[in-house]
Amino acid sequence: MNKFSWYEAKSVEDAIEQANSTVSEEIYTPTGKASIYKSGGIDVWDMVKEGLIAPQMIVNVRNIKGLDKMSFDPDSGLSIGANVTLTEIEQSPEVSEHYTALQQAVAHAATPQLRNMSTLAGNLAQRTRCWYFRSADHPCMRKGGDRCYARSQQTGQNENHAILDNGSCVSLHASSVATALLAYEASIVYLDAKGESHEVPIEDFFVSPSQDIWRENILSPGDLITEIKVPTPSSGTRSHYVKQVARESYDWSLADVAVVAKMNGNKCEKITIALGAAAPTPVRAYRAEEALINQVINKESAKLAGETAMASARPLTMNGYKVPLFLTTISQALLEIA
Protein backbone atom coordinates (compact mmCIF):
# COMPACT_ATOMS: atom_id res chain seq x y z
CA MET A 1 0.00 0.00 0.00
CA ASN A 2 1.21 3.51 -0.77
CA LYS A 3 1.63 6.01 2.02
CA PHE A 4 -1.19 8.48 2.51
CA SER A 5 -2.32 10.98 5.05
CA TRP A 6 -5.65 10.66 6.80
CA TYR A 7 -8.09 13.52 7.18
CA GLU A 8 -10.69 12.93 9.86
CA ALA A 9 -13.62 15.00 8.59
CA LYS A 10 -15.95 16.55 11.14
CA SER A 11 -18.80 17.60 8.87
CA VAL A 12 -19.91 17.13 5.28
CA GLU A 13 -18.84 20.70 4.49
CA ASP A 14 -15.44 19.99 5.98
CA ALA A 15 -15.12 16.77 3.96
CA ILE A 16 -16.11 18.40 0.68
CA GLU A 17 -13.40 21.01 1.10
CA GLN A 18 -10.78 18.29 1.38
CA ALA A 19 -11.72 15.82 -1.36
CA ASN A 20 -10.45 16.65 -4.82
CA SER A 21 -10.87 13.37 -6.68
CA THR A 22 -12.80 10.12 -6.96
CA VAL A 23 -11.69 6.52 -7.27
CA SER A 24 -12.64 6.64 -10.96
CA GLU A 25 -10.69 9.83 -11.67
CA GLU A 26 -7.70 8.47 -9.83
CA ILE A 27 -7.68 5.31 -11.95
CA TYR A 28 -7.57 7.23 -15.23
CA THR A 29 -5.45 10.19 -14.51
CA PRO A 30 -3.34 9.49 -11.43
CA THR A 31 -2.20 12.87 -10.22
CA GLY A 32 -0.27 11.72 -7.22
CA LYS A 33 -2.21 14.38 -5.33
CA ALA A 34 -5.62 12.79 -5.06
CA SER A 35 -7.66 13.00 -1.90
CA ILE A 36 -10.65 10.68 -1.91
CA TYR A 37 -13.48 9.80 0.44
CA LYS A 38 -13.55 6.65 2.49
CA SER A 39 -16.29 5.46 4.76
CA GLY A 40 -16.51 1.72 5.49
CA GLY A 41 -13.42 1.60 3.30
CA ILE A 42 -13.84 -1.89 1.92
CA ASP A 43 -13.68 -1.05 -1.76
CA VAL A 44 -11.20 1.80 -1.30
CA TRP A 45 -8.72 -0.40 0.60
CA ASP A 46 -9.20 -3.19 -1.88
CA MET A 47 -8.21 -0.88 -4.72
CA VAL A 48 -5.33 0.68 -2.81
CA LYS A 49 -3.97 -2.76 -1.90
CA GLU A 50 -4.29 -3.88 -5.51
CA GLY A 51 -2.34 -0.82 -6.64
CA LEU A 52 -5.21 0.48 -8.78
CA ILE A 53 -5.29 3.78 -6.97
CA ALA A 54 -2.65 5.58 -4.92
CA PRO A 55 -4.36 8.44 -3.13
CA GLN A 56 -2.24 10.97 -1.31
CA MET A 57 -4.96 11.60 1.23
CA ILE A 58 -7.92 9.67 2.56
CA VAL A 59 -10.82 11.82 3.71
CA ASN A 60 -12.55 9.74 6.35
CA VAL A 61 -16.27 10.49 6.34
CA ARG A 62 -17.18 7.50 8.51
CA ASN A 63 -17.45 9.47 11.76
CA ILE A 64 -19.38 12.49 10.50
CA LYS A 65 -22.31 13.05 12.81
CA GLY A 66 -25.78 12.62 11.37
CA LEU A 67 -24.86 10.45 8.38
CA ASP A 68 -25.60 7.26 10.32
CA LYS A 69 -29.33 7.83 10.89
CA MET A 70 -32.12 5.75 9.47
CA SER A 71 -35.79 6.63 9.80
CA PHE A 72 -39.13 5.63 8.38
CA ASP A 73 -42.16 7.83 7.98
CA PRO A 74 -45.30 6.63 6.15
CA ASP A 75 -45.55 9.98 4.33
CA SER A 76 -41.95 10.56 3.34
CA GLY A 77 -40.74 6.99 3.21
CA LEU A 78 -37.46 5.45 4.31
CA SER A 79 -34.43 7.66 4.78
CA ILE A 80 -31.11 5.85 5.04
CA GLY A 81 -28.07 7.93 5.95
CA ALA A 82 -24.98 7.39 3.83
CA ASN A 83 -23.12 5.73 6.71
CA VAL A 84 -25.84 3.31 7.78
CA THR A 85 -24.37 -0.19 7.60
CA LEU A 86 -25.87 -3.09 5.68
CA THR A 87 -26.33 -4.92 9.01
CA GLU A 88 -28.36 -2.02 10.37
CA ILE A 89 -30.60 -2.11 7.30
CA GLU A 90 -30.88 -5.90 7.48
CA GLN A 91 -31.97 -5.75 11.13
CA SER A 92 -34.30 -2.76 10.87
CA PRO A 93 -37.89 -3.71 11.81
CA GLU A 94 -39.23 -0.98 9.48
CA VAL A 95 -37.27 -2.35 6.53
CA SER A 96 -38.50 -5.87 7.26
CA GLU A 97 -42.09 -4.67 7.54
CA HIS A 98 -42.31 -2.34 4.54
CA TYR A 99 -39.45 -3.28 2.23
CA THR A 100 -39.26 -7.08 2.05
CA ALA A 101 -37.15 -7.21 -1.11
CA LEU A 102 -34.64 -4.69 0.26
CA GLN A 103 -34.26 -6.68 3.47
CA GLN A 104 -33.74 -9.86 1.46
CA ALA A 105 -31.17 -8.22 -0.80
CA VAL A 106 -29.17 -6.79 2.08
CA ALA A 107 -29.25 -10.05 4.02
CA HIS A 108 -27.76 -11.86 1.01
CA ALA A 109 -25.03 -9.31 0.35
CA ALA A 110 -21.41 -10.11 1.18
CA THR A 111 -20.50 -11.71 4.53
CA PRO A 112 -21.69 -10.95 8.09
CA GLN A 113 -18.34 -9.26 8.76
CA LEU A 114 -18.54 -7.08 5.65
CA ARG A 115 -22.16 -6.17 6.34
CA ASN A 116 -21.06 -4.91 9.74
CA MET A 117 -18.53 -2.65 8.04
CA SER A 118 -20.15 -1.68 4.71
CA THR A 119 -22.09 1.53 4.50
CA LEU A 120 -24.94 1.81 2.02
CA ALA A 121 -23.37 4.77 0.20
CA GLY A 122 -20.10 2.88 -0.16
CA ASN A 123 -21.92 -0.19 -1.37
CA LEU A 124 -23.57 1.83 -4.14
CA ALA A 125 -20.39 3.68 -5.09
CA GLN A 126 -18.12 0.61 -5.20
CA ARG A 127 -16.52 -0.23 -8.53
CA THR A 128 -17.12 -3.32 -10.64
CA ARG A 129 -15.71 -6.68 -9.60
CA CYS A 130 -14.71 -7.63 -13.17
CA TRP A 131 -11.44 -9.50 -12.59
CA TYR A 132 -9.73 -7.72 -15.47
CA PHE A 133 -10.71 -4.35 -14.05
CA ARG A 134 -9.45 -5.43 -10.62
CA SER A 135 -6.11 -6.63 -11.98
CA ALA A 136 -3.41 -4.00 -12.26
CA ASP A 137 -1.86 -6.17 -15.00
CA HIS A 138 -4.84 -5.67 -17.34
CA PRO A 139 -5.14 -2.11 -18.71
CA CYS A 140 -8.74 -2.55 -19.81
CA MET A 141 -11.01 0.05 -21.42
CA ARG A 142 -12.42 1.09 -18.08
CA LYS A 143 -8.93 1.88 -16.85
CA GLY A 144 -7.91 3.86 -19.91
CA GLY A 145 -6.73 0.91 -22.03
CA ASP A 146 -7.93 0.11 -25.53
CA ARG A 147 -9.73 -3.19 -25.13
CA CYS A 148 -12.03 -5.34 -23.10
CA TYR A 149 -10.21 -8.51 -22.07
CA ALA A 150 -13.44 -10.20 -21.01
CA ARG A 151 -14.95 -9.76 -24.48
CA SER A 152 -12.14 -11.59 -26.30
CA GLN A 153 -13.49 -14.56 -28.27
CA GLN A 154 -10.30 -16.51 -27.70
CA THR A 155 -9.25 -15.79 -24.13
CA GLY A 156 -12.04 -13.83 -22.45
CA GLN A 157 -13.04 -15.25 -19.08
CA ASN A 158 -16.54 -13.85 -19.14
CA GLU A 159 -18.74 -16.38 -17.36
CA ASN A 160 -19.89 -13.77 -14.84
CA HIS A 161 -20.25 -10.87 -17.24
CA ALA A 162 -23.10 -8.90 -18.79
CA ILE A 163 -25.69 -10.28 -21.18
CA LEU A 164 -27.57 -6.98 -21.58
CA ASP A 165 -26.17 -3.59 -22.63
CA ASN A 166 -22.83 -5.27 -23.30
CA GLY A 167 -21.76 -3.48 -26.47
CA SER A 168 -18.96 -1.68 -24.63
CA CYS A 169 -17.33 -2.82 -21.37
CA VAL A 170 -19.09 -6.04 -20.31
CA SER A 171 -18.55 -5.74 -16.55
CA LEU A 172 -21.35 -5.92 -13.99
CA HIS A 173 -22.20 -3.47 -11.28
CA ALA A 174 -21.13 -5.02 -8.00
CA SER A 175 -24.00 -3.98 -5.74
CA SER A 176 -26.91 -6.40 -5.45
CA VAL A 177 -28.53 -4.08 -2.89
CA ALA A 178 -28.84 -1.61 -5.76
CA THR A 179 -31.08 -4.08 -7.60
CA ALA A 180 -33.64 -3.91 -4.80
CA LEU A 181 -33.32 -0.13 -4.43
CA LEU A 182 -33.93 0.25 -8.17
CA ALA A 183 -37.13 -1.80 -7.91
CA TYR A 184 -38.32 0.51 -5.12
CA GLU A 185 -37.44 3.54 -7.26
CA ALA A 186 -35.14 4.90 -4.58
CA SER A 187 -33.22 8.12 -5.00
CA ILE A 188 -29.74 9.23 -4.03
CA VAL A 189 -29.10 12.52 -2.29
CA TYR A 190 -25.62 13.98 -2.64
CA LEU A 191 -23.80 17.23 -2.08
CA ASP A 192 -21.68 18.62 -4.88
CA ALA A 193 -18.30 20.25 -4.43
CA LYS A 194 -20.00 23.61 -3.87
CA GLY A 195 -22.13 22.16 -1.10
CA GLU A 196 -25.36 22.17 -3.09
CA SER A 197 -27.70 19.25 -2.53
CA HIS A 198 -29.00 17.13 -5.41
CA GLU A 199 -31.48 14.28 -5.47
CA VAL A 200 -31.41 11.84 -8.39
CA PRO A 201 -33.42 8.70 -9.09
CA ILE A 202 -31.12 5.72 -8.55
CA GLU A 203 -31.62 4.77 -12.19
CA ASP A 204 -29.92 8.02 -13.21
CA PHE A 205 -27.21 7.64 -10.58
CA PHE A 206 -25.62 4.69 -12.37
CA VAL A 207 -23.88 5.30 -15.68
CA SER A 208 -23.58 2.63 -18.34
CA PRO A 209 -20.19 2.26 -20.08
CA SER A 210 -22.04 2.75 -23.36
CA GLN A 211 -22.77 6.28 -22.12
CA ASP A 212 -19.42 6.94 -20.45
CA ILE A 213 -16.71 4.29 -20.12
CA TRP A 214 -14.83 6.40 -17.57
CA ARG A 215 -17.31 6.16 -14.77
CA GLU A 216 -19.92 3.93 -13.14
CA ASN A 217 -21.94 6.65 -11.47
CA ILE A 218 -22.54 10.36 -11.81
CA LEU A 219 -20.35 11.43 -8.89
CA SER A 220 -17.69 14.01 -9.71
CA PRO A 221 -14.74 14.98 -7.54
CA GLY A 222 -15.99 16.35 -4.22
CA ASP A 223 -19.52 14.94 -4.59
CA LEU A 224 -20.56 13.18 -1.40
CA ILE A 225 -23.58 10.92 -0.97
CA THR A 226 -25.48 11.88 2.18
CA GLU A 227 -28.71 9.93 2.05
CA ILE A 228 -30.65 7.26 0.20
CA LYS A 229 -34.42 7.77 0.06
CA VAL A 230 -36.88 4.98 -0.59
CA PRO A 231 -40.53 5.90 -1.18
CA THR A 232 -43.21 4.25 0.93
CA PRO A 233 -44.78 1.42 -1.03
CA SER A 234 -48.50 2.03 -1.51
CA SER A 235 -50.87 -0.32 0.27
CA GLY A 236 -51.28 -3.67 -1.41
CA THR A 237 -47.66 -3.69 -2.50
CA ARG A 238 -45.75 -6.95 -2.42
CA SER A 239 -42.08 -7.36 -3.09
CA HIS A 240 -39.52 -10.13 -3.39
CA TYR A 241 -35.83 -10.50 -4.15
CA VAL A 242 -33.98 -13.58 -5.44
CA LYS A 243 -30.22 -13.89 -5.87
CA GLN A 244 -28.50 -16.76 -7.65
CA VAL A 245 -24.96 -17.58 -6.58
CA ALA A 246 -22.45 -20.34 -7.28
CA ARG A 247 -21.81 -21.10 -3.60
CA GLU A 248 -24.34 -21.62 -0.84
CA SER A 249 -22.33 -19.63 1.70
CA TYR A 250 -21.82 -16.24 0.07
CA ASP A 251 -20.85 -15.05 -3.36
CA TRP A 252 -21.21 -12.33 -5.92
CA SER A 253 -24.46 -12.48 -7.81
CA LEU A 254 -24.75 -14.43 -11.05
CA ALA A 255 -28.31 -13.22 -11.51
CA ASP A 256 -30.51 -11.32 -9.09
CA VAL A 257 -34.03 -10.03 -9.47
CA ALA A 258 -36.16 -7.69 -7.37
CA VAL A 259 -39.86 -7.23 -8.02
CA VAL A 260 -42.14 -4.67 -6.37
CA ALA A 261 -45.79 -4.85 -7.38
CA LYS A 262 -48.99 -3.16 -6.36
CA MET A 263 -51.75 -5.71 -6.67
CA ASN A 264 -55.43 -5.04 -7.22
CA GLY A 265 -57.14 -8.28 -6.29
CA ASN A 266 -55.15 -10.87 -8.18
CA LYS A 267 -54.23 -8.45 -10.96
CA CYS A 268 -51.04 -6.48 -11.19
CA GLU A 269 -51.75 -2.77 -11.13
CA LYS A 270 -48.20 -1.44 -11.10
CA ILE A 271 -44.92 -3.33 -11.13
CA THR A 272 -41.20 -2.73 -11.23
CA ILE A 273 -38.76 -5.50 -12.12
CA ALA A 274 -35.06 -4.82 -11.56
CA LEU A 275 -32.24 -7.08 -12.76
CA GLY A 276 -28.79 -7.25 -11.18
CA ALA A 277 -25.74 -8.98 -12.68
CA ALA A 278 -27.35 -8.71 -16.12
CA ALA A 279 -25.81 -5.47 -17.36
CA PRO A 280 -23.05 -3.05 -16.37
CA THR A 281 -25.63 -1.20 -14.26
CA PRO A 282 -28.68 -2.49 -12.42
CA VAL A 283 -31.47 -2.33 -15.03
CA ARG A 284 -35.24 -2.22 -15.14
CA ALA A 285 -37.05 -4.77 -17.31
CA TYR A 286 -39.51 -2.18 -18.62
CA ARG A 287 -41.04 -4.27 -21.40
CA ALA A 288 -41.60 -7.18 -19.04
CA GLU A 289 -43.26 -4.78 -16.58
CA GLU A 290 -45.58 -3.50 -19.31
CA ALA A 291 -46.51 -7.03 -20.27
CA LEU A 292 -47.75 -7.69 -16.73
CA ILE A 293 -49.91 -4.61 -16.20
CA ASN A 294 -53.53 -5.60 -15.54
CA GLN A 295 -52.54 -9.25 -15.80
CA VAL A 296 -52.88 -12.02 -13.27
CA ILE A 297 -49.41 -13.17 -12.24
CA ASN A 298 -49.25 -16.89 -12.86
CA LYS A 299 -46.84 -19.39 -14.40
CA GLU A 300 -47.70 -18.35 -17.94
CA SER A 301 -47.51 -14.59 -17.48
CA ALA A 302 -44.37 -14.91 -15.34
CA LYS A 303 -42.68 -17.01 -18.04
CA LEU A 304 -43.67 -14.49 -20.68
CA ALA A 305 -42.30 -11.65 -18.57
CA GLY A 306 -38.97 -13.46 -18.28
CA GLU A 307 -38.83 -14.08 -22.02
CA THR A 308 -39.64 -10.44 -22.69
CA ALA A 309 -36.89 -9.30 -20.35
CA MET A 310 -34.38 -11.60 -22.03
CA ALA A 311 -35.41 -10.85 -25.62
CA SER A 312 -32.50 -8.46 -26.12
CA ALA A 313 -29.92 -10.64 -24.30
CA ARG A 314 -26.66 -11.14 -26.16
CA PRO A 315 -24.56 -13.67 -24.24
CA LEU A 316 -20.78 -13.69 -24.57
CA THR A 317 -18.73 -16.85 -25.13
CA MET A 318 -19.09 -18.26 -21.61
CA ASN A 319 -22.22 -16.78 -20.05
CA GLY A 320 -25.01 -18.22 -22.17
CA TYR A 321 -26.30 -19.99 -19.06
CA LYS A 322 -27.39 -16.63 -17.66
CA VAL A 323 -30.32 -16.37 -20.08
CA PRO A 324 -32.17 -19.44 -18.75
CA LEU A 325 -31.02 -18.54 -15.25
CA PHE A 326 -32.70 -15.13 -15.53
CA LEU A 327 -35.81 -16.68 -17.09
CA THR A 328 -36.16 -18.93 -14.06
CA THR A 329 -35.23 -16.28 -11.52
CA ILE A 330 -37.64 -13.68 -12.89
CA SER A 331 -40.45 -16.25 -12.83
CA GLN A 332 -39.51 -17.34 -9.34
CA ALA A 333 -39.55 -13.77 -7.98
CA LEU A 334 -42.86 -12.99 -9.69
CA LEU A 335 -44.59 -16.14 -8.48
CA GLU A 336 -43.55 -15.28 -4.90
CA ILE A 337 -45.69 -12.14 -5.02
CA ALA A 338 -48.56 -13.61 -7.08
Binding site: W6, G41, I42, W45, D46, T111, N116
Partner: peptide, 28 residues
Protein backbone atom coordinates in the same frame (compact mmCIF):
# COMPACT_ATOMS: atom_id res chain seq x y z
CA UNK B 1 -6.00 -9.73 2.94
CA UNK B 2 -9.15 -8.47 1.14
CA UNK B 3 -12.05 -9.22 3.48
CA UNK B 4 -13.06 -12.28 1.49
CA UNK B 5 -12.11 -15.15 3.80
CA UNK B 6 -12.71 -13.75 7.32
CA UNK B 7 -9.69 -15.52 8.83
CA UNK B 8 -8.86 -12.13 10.39
CA UNK B 9 -12.21 -11.76 12.17
CA UNK B 10 -12.06 -9.71 15.37
CA UNK B 11 -14.78 -7.91 17.30
CA UNK B 12 -14.98 -4.15 17.33
CA UNK B 13 -17.48 -3.13 19.98
CA UNK B 14 -18.81 -6.67 19.92
CA UNK B 15 -19.36 -6.89 16.15
CA UNK B 16 -17.33 -9.26 13.97
CA UNK B 17 -15.32 -7.36 11.35
CA UNK B 18 -12.34 -8.05 9.09
CA UNK B 19 -9.12 -6.73 10.62
CA UNK B 20 -7.35 -6.87 7.24
CA UNK B 21 -9.48 -4.11 5.71
CA UNK B 22 -10.00 -2.07 8.84
CA UNK B 23 -7.31 0.52 9.41
CA UNK B 24 -5.90 0.89 12.91
CA UNK B 25 -7.02 4.55 12.80
CA UNK B 26 -10.57 3.40 12.18
CA UNK B 27 -10.86 1.73 15.57
CA UNK B 28 -11.03 4.93 17.55
Amino acid sequence: DRGSCSACTVFIDGKPVNACITMALDVG
